[in-house]
Amino acid sequence: MNMNNGKILEYTRFPSPNPRVELTVITYLSNGLRVKGMLAAPLGNEPLDGFLYLRGGIKNVGKVRPARIAQFAAEGFIVFAPFYRGNQGGEGNEDFAGEDREDAFSAYLLLKSLARVRDIHIFGFSRGGVMALMTAIQFPETASVVTWGGVSDMVLTYRERKDLRRMMKRVIGGTPEKFPERYRERTPLFEMEKLVPPVLIIHGVKDHNVSVEHGYRLESRLRSLEKPVECWYFEEYTHYFPPVVNRKVVEDLSKWMKNQSKRW
């Protein structure tokens, strides 16, 4: 890993939807690339836990939403959400949990370098689920991991999402049959024995974007290894929860994270 990973190069203030939360677009280094992300920090100087927000999608699908990360910051976290390489003015090309995992690792180091940040929690939504698990494996001191509607198995994504196959073949370089190792290295299920922090799995049972089978496979693997895992399955919801429920789950998962922290 490059010694300069996570180094902050530029700050640009960004209009915030919450007057008590400051938003900043940050350019930072990730293996020599200038990558961008957004920081959301509650006003003040008091130390708070860090929250690494790993988005889903690819390119313009699933972009980081300022209101969403401000929502988590309002729960009492300093939130950083990398855009991943090649997005919103960043250098390089996004790699769908390949080399762009380095952008998540470097974002973790960036958070760690901030004076106000104490323990760091990792959150992944959708494709961000695999990024979150990979980052937690890389940094065993992580306080907790939450995966919400998260991908855990890249081959399963290829099988289920016919609409994503062309993109996956282009970005990953072929099919799971032709390049099983490329899909395996993007599937952290095979490395769960290296995972240290507790995991919370949140998944809608009617999710058609990332089937609940991803949650079940992750849960099964963690339980087989006797790793700490909690699961919140919602029978009636899809990939996206209604706003009122969503707000409640954000509050609940924030409390869960703080309960895992070493300092609360």
Results as ranks from 00 to 15, higher is better:
Met1Asn: 13
Met1Ser: 15
Asn5Asp: 15
Leu9Val: 14
Leu9Thr: 11
Glu10Gly: 08
Thr12Ser: 12
Thr12Gln: 14
Ser16Asn: 11
Pro19Ala: 10
Val21His: 08
Glu22Trp: 09
Ile26Leu: 09
Thr27Gln: 12
Thr27Glu: 12
Tyr28Lys: 06
Tyr28Met: 05
Leu33Gly: 03
Val35Gly: 04
Met38Phe: 11
Ala40Leu: 12
Gly44Thr: 12
Asn45Trp: 13
Asn45His: 14
Glu46Leu: 14
Glu46Arg: 15
Pro47Thr: 14
Pro47Gln: 15
Gly50His: 07
Leu54Asn: 00
Gly57Ile: 02
Gly57His: 02
Gly57Arg: 01
Ile58Met: 01
Ile58Lys: 00
Lys59Pro: 01
Val61Arg: 08
Gly62Thr: 03
Val64Ser: 03
Arg65Ser: 06
Pro66Leu: 08
Gln71Gly: 12
Phe72Pro: 06
Phe77Asn: 07
Ile78Leu: 13
Val79Met: 08
Phe80Arg: 07
Ala81Lys: 11
Tyr84Leu: 01
Arg85Val: 02
Arg85Cys: 02
Gly90Asn: 04
Gly92Thr: 11
Ala97Gly: 03
Gly98Met: 00
Gly98Ser: 01
Asp100Met: 00
Arg101Asn: 07
Glu102Asp: 13
Glu102His: 13
Asp103His: 08
Leu110His: 12
Leu114Arg: 14
Ala115Tyr: 11
Arg116Lys: 14
Val117Cys: 12
Arg118Trp: 09
Arg118Glu: 12
Asp119Arg: 15
Asp119Ala: 15
Asp119Pro: 03
Ile120Ser: 02
Ile120Met: 05
His121Pro: 07
His121Met: 05
Ile122Cys: 01
Phe123Cys: 02
Gly124Pro: 10
Gly124Gln: 05
Phe125His: 13
Gly129Ile: 04
Met131Phe: 15
Met131Ser: 09
Leu133His: 04
Leu133Met: 09
Met134Ala: 13
Thr135Met: 06
Pro140Ile: 07
Met154Thr: 05
Val155Gln: 13
Asp163Phe: 04
Met167Pro: 01
Met168Arg: 00
Met168Leu: 15
Met168Ile: 05
Arg170Gln: 02
Ile172Phe: 00
Gly173Asn: 04
Pro176Thr: 01
Phe179Val: 08
Pro180Gln: 02
Glu181Asp: 14
Arg182His: 11
Arg182Ser: 12
Glu185Lys: 13
Met192His: 03
Met192Ala: 04
Glu193Ile: 13
Val196Lys: 15
Pro198Asn: 06
Gly204Pro: 09
His208Val: 10
Asn209Ala: 10
Val210Arg: 06
Ser211Cys: 04
Gly215Arg: 03
Tyr216Cys: 03
Arg217Phe: 05
Glu219Leu: 13
Ser220Leu: 07
Arg221Asp: 00
Arg221Thr: 14
Leu222Gly: 07
Ser224Gly: 11
Ser224Asp: 10
Glu226Gly: 06
Trp232Asp: 02
Tyr233Lys: 06
Tyr233Phe: 15
Glu235Ser: 08
Glu236Met: 07
His239Cys: 02
Tyr240Lys: 05
Pro243Leu: 01
Val244His: 06
Val250Ile: 15
Val250Cys: 08
Val250Arg: 14
Glu251Phe: 12
Glu251Tyr: 11
Asp252Glu: 15
Asp252Pro: 01
Asp252Ala: 14
Lys258Asn: 08
Asn259Trp: 11
Asn259Tyr: 09
Asn259Leu: 12
Asn259Cys: 05
Gln260Glu: 04
Lys262Thr: 11
Arg263Gly: 05
